[in-house]
Simulated scan of single mutants.
Amino acid sequence: MVRKANFLIRNNCPYTVWAASVPVGGGRQLNSGQQWTITVNPGTTQARIWARTGCNFDGLGHGRCQTGDCGGVLQCKGYGQPPNTLAEYALKQFNNLDFFDISLVDGFNVPMEFVPTSGACTRGPRCTADINGQCPNELRAPGGCNNPCTVFKTDQYCCNSGSCGPTSYSKFFKDRCPDAYSYPKDDATSTFTCPSGTNYRVVFCP
Results as ranks from 00 to 15, higher is better:
1 M>P: 09
2 V>I: 13
4 K>M: 04
5 A>R: 09
6 N>S: 15
8 L>E: 15
12 N>A: 13
15 Y>V: 12
18 W>D: 06
20 A>P: 05
21 S>V: 05
26 G>S: 08
26 G>L: 05
28 R>G: 11
30 L>N: 06
31 N>E: 15
32 S>C: 05
33 G>F: 13
35 Q>P: 03
38 I>H: 04
40 V>T: 07
40 V>R: 04
41 N>C: 05
42 P>Q: 04
43 G>N: 08
44 T>K: 12
44 T>Y: 07
46 Q>H: 08
48 R>Y: 10
50 W>C: 06
50 W>N: 00
52 R>S: 07
54 G>W: 13
55 C>S: 14
56 N>G: 12
59 G>E: 13
71 G>S: 09
73 V>K: 13
74 L>M: 15
74 L>V: 06
75 Q>H: 12
80 G>S: 12
81 Q>M: 15
82 P>Y: 10
84 N>P: 00
85 T>G: 13
86 L>D: 03
86 L>F: 08
88 E>G: 03
88 E>D: 08
92 K>Y: 10
93 Q>W: 03
93 Q>T: 14
95 N>P: 01
100 F>A: 01
101 D>V: 04
103 S>W: 03
105 V>S: 00
107 G>Q: 10
107 G>S: 02
110 V>F: 02
119 G>R: 02
119 G>N: 05
121 C>N: 08
125 P>R: 04
125 P>W: 01
127 C>K: 10
131 I>E: 04
133 G>K: 09
133 G>M: 08
134 Q>C: 07
137 N>C: 01
139 L>G: 02
140 R>T: 11
140 R>H: 13
144 G>Q: 03
147 N>F: 12
150 T>D: 14
153 K>S: 12
155 D>V: 01
163 S>Y: 12
163 S>V: 04
164 C>G: 14
166 P>M: 00
167 T>Q: 11
168 S>C: 02
170 S>M: 08
173 F>I: 00
173 F>S: 02
175 D>C: 03
176 R>A: 09
178 P>A: 02
182 S>I: 00
189 T>E: 14
191 T>A: 13
192 F>Y: 15
192 F>I: 01
193 T>K: 06
195 P>C: 10
197 G>H: 11
197 G>T: 09
198 T>H: 03
202 V>Y: 13
203 V>E: 11
204 F>N: 03
